[in-house]
Design a protein around this nucleic acid. Sequence first.
DNA 1: CCATAATCTGAACACTATTCAGATTCCGAC
DNA 2: GTCGGAATCTGAATAGTGTTCAGATTATGG
Lengths: 208, 208
Amino acid sequence: MSLPKVLRVSKSGRESYHHGDLEAALVDAAIELVRKTGPGHLSLRAVAEQVGVSPSAVYHYFPDKDALVSHVGDKLFVDLADMQREALAKIPGKSARAARLRYRELGRTYFRWAYKEPNLFRLMFGGFCKIEKEGLHIEDEAFQMLTQCLDDLLATGLISPEMRQYGELISWSSVQGASNLIVEGHLPPDVFESLLDGLELAMIGRKK
Amino acid sequence: MSLPKVLRVSKSGRESYHHGDLEAALVDAAIELVRKTGPGHLSLRAVAEQVGVSPSAVYHYFPDKDALVSHVGDKLFVDLADMQREALAKIPGKSARAARLRYRELGRTYFRWAYKEPNLFRLMFGGFCKIEKEGLHIEDEAFQMLTQCLDDLLATGLISPEMRQYGELISWSSVQGASNLIVEGHLPPDVFESLLDGLELAMIGRKK
DNA sequence: CCATAATCTGAACACTATTCAGATTCCGAC
DNA sequence: GTCGGAATCTGAATAGTGTTCAGATTATGG
């Protein structure tokens, strides 16, 4: 009995009094608006209007505007992890060369995401979405991919066990920091490739 | 004829119709409020009220709220550079040991700043203050101190010339990134010292 | 000392988040 | 099927926001 509710018509102007999947629609609309306006200038009313719903309807799914923004952040982290997985899938193989390329591509994908959508990147890492989980958890899926990459580098002998233990920390921090600094205009975009060069030099030890 | 205007009394309720140094007072009040509320929830009216002035008075010094926030950012960058300079001044000397301690302390000061005042840190690097300058400039004073530190490490033979050329980029990026990730709850605070260890291992090459 | 410029106020406008009583629609039990 | 309760959404209202502008107040140079 779950026909596509979009097709039904009711007394109210819209296709259906109920929306179908309002929660997801609100998050998607919010993403679109944050992309343009930035996370600080997002309007709850504009989100509702974009979806074709009254502002108060939002409060049936989110306790307040901040909660909506927070859920937007959750979705963005999933999207980023998806991109990373796709990028890695294009460079299979157990060779040292493949491992190194994967490592670089992981950082590049991260930066490309940030540089293409500065406002979404700001939302993710600018204190707009509350992390309620505790411990080392990090953003689990993306972190696991990085761990795998580093394990591959270790297995092929490209990094030392001593260096390996700092792998996630240095990699994630420097890629995150460089992306942040470039997005905010403190560094020019072209230095990111240099960062990857320097990171390889630091971790692996020899210039290619 | 520039007596302290605070002492004078006029027809209006306040001590003086004119304020004296309203621009600086507004920036200071804004910093105080951002510290508590976060850069996104700063209220122009609250800033004016804190200073004891009407909201419209703000517009004689800043074209809009964003401009005020931007000037807050400028001041914070100066404050941070001051802290870094003070930290470096406590570790003089041309020895390799001193150079290494200075390098670490530079990063630590940066992180301490971020961790003590998350909301101010977010304002500085969250897209709230516009960088209008162009080129490599970076935040000039702090960057110069980092350059000096790295030159000292090079002079004492602790880093190779090959590594030296990536020094500013890797150092600033990773310290910025780690601070950001820790402040936003993606990493626990105690990993920052590990980052410094890893950074030394990567740049200098030997574990102390 | 006065005219002019600088500074600040008060009221207004359009917009915002949030609340809540009530209208509308869905869904399961009979 | 249909009836009643639950879920969903609306409309109006409240309090607070950034911003503008005419005019009141104060400082300052000639």
